[in-house]
Simulated scan of single mutants.
Amino acid sequence: MSVLRVRGVVLPEREERTFWLDGDRLRTGPAPGGDAELVVDGGFPLPGLVDVHTHPGTESVESPFDASVLRKHLLEHREAGVLLVRTPGTVARMPAWVDGDAELPRVRSAGRWLATPGRFFPGAGRDIAEDELPAAAVEEASASSGWCKVIGDWRWDEPAVPLDLLTEAVAAVHAAGGRVAVHCQSAEGARNAVLAGADSLEYGMHLDPGLLDRMAAQGTALVPTLAAFGANADAWYARERSARRGDWITGWEGMLANVCSAYEAGVTVLAGTDSFPCGTVAAEAAWLARAGMPADAALGAASWTARDWLGLPGLTEGAPADLVAYDTDPALDPGALAHPARIILRGRVAH
């Protein structure tokens, strides 16, 4: 039986290395005897891509969660080289069979969206009273991959989840060993998420840049999903002037500025798509670069930085054998990121 080997200039280190595949693990020492098959021979291998904000399983809040749609979406991710996803909230909890399917990307789920009254599409998540939030947050984190997702605000002109309540929920989840993602699109919602100690801000629209140093110090990541917002930007600029239009444009332009400022302040900025079809994280990495992040940092936000943040190593001895390889350096040729030459998931060649 042939031993599968990988050789190339590994990113982000840009060092030429050779690995062999030991089941679903990477090994750097001498390969066992027998024939060796180079499944990657040259080029640029990097840790499997990551989408940290995707909602596979349904394409709208009106559609029921469907196992066949879930598998279709996850396969779309895999075919694009996305081998690890975080699902910050879904209509239903992630089925147990997902983790056991060797053909699918690894999944870090966050249970059902947690929505207090008036702060989400009715019935799309887990609707709870405000005083139920701390206990419900612990329940969802415990029933998933350790994450829960709180809808921290909703309408642009209505109050966000109160700071004291959100702080209590975050503290309860942290005490249980979990992590909290917070949806925030208003200045109050973003402020409360940061002050409450959330682990990630989803969107962060209207985020006060004065809070970036605090985010960096406490380890709060920013997941702006710029591509999803950017897809609608022209339509918003074309609308008749109104308070809502002005608020959206101010928030959008602030998001673009904050991405670069957040990176420079030491905040972990990550790539998430929040859109369909799945498997478009390369476009999000391009938006991060367009917003001012260095090319390597924007690429890392969709690969090694995101994997490290989710608790998985890069291409090192004993790491999961999840990698994508490119004929050209995707940091220097961003268009290449959407077209991997080789995809290896759990030690098996997927493409």
Rank of each mutant, 00 (worst) to 15 (best):
S142F: 00
L256T: 09
A338T: 10
A143T: 00
W20I: 05
W304D: 00
R25D: 10
D322L: 03
V6M: 05
A193G: 12
T220G: 04
H73A: 12
G266F: 07
A80E: 00
L21T: 03
A231N: 12
F19N: 03
R214M: 13
A338H: 05
G314K: 02
F229V: 14
V61G: 02
R108D: 05
F229R: 07
A231M: 12
A257S: 14
D208Y: 06
W154P: 03
T273Y: 11
L312P: 01
W309M: 05
Y203G: 01
A176P: 01
A80L: 06
V194Y: 01
L195H: 04
A221W: 02
S186D: 03
R108E: 12
W309Q: 04
R214P: 07
G204S: 10
T280G: 12
D101S: 05
E202F: 03
V69F: 00
G81Y: 05
A228S: 15
R112I: 09
R245V: 13
L70M: 08
A136F: 03
P45R: 09
I343D: 00
E317Q: 15
I128L: 13
A297I: 05
V194N: 00
A238F: 13
G335P: 04
E15T: 14
V223G: 04
V69C: 11
A110D: 03
A306E: 06
D35G: 15
E140M: 04
S261G: 05
K72V: 09
H183L: 03
N232D: 12
L104T: 06
G314Y: 01
F65L: 10
G318E: 12
D99S: 15
A31R: 12
V173G: 01
A141F: 02
E103D: 15
Y263A: 06
T250L: 10
G210P: 05
G219Q: 07
A96S: 15
C184D: 07
A221C: 09
G254Y: 05
V267T: 06
L133Q: 04
W287H: 11
M94K: 03
G42Y: 08
A221L: 06
D274C: 12
R5M: 10
P320H: 06
S242M: 09
P334R: 00
D41M: 09
E253M: 11
L195R: 13
R244P: 00
A181W: 04
K72H: 15
V85Q: 10
V349L: 15
H174E: 13
T58F: 15
L83A: 11
M1H: 14
H55D: 02
A289G: 13
A227G: 07
A135T: 14
V61N: 08
G177M: 07
E240P: 11
G177F: 06
W252S: 10
A243T: 05
G33S: 15
E188S: 13
G100V: 04
H174L: 08
C184W: 00
D153Y: 01
L166K: 05
G197C: 08
E158M: 11
P162I: 10
G100S: 11
V182G: 02
T328C: 12
A235Y: 09
A289K: 06
T18C: 13
A285L: 04
A171G: 14
E317W: 14
V52I: 15
R119D: 02
P340D: 06
V3S: 11
L70S: 08
V3G: 11
L46V: 06
L212I: 04
L166P: 01
G48H: 06
R191E: 13
D234Q: 13
L4Q: 13
M215H: 01
A190R: 00
D101R: 09
T116C: 01
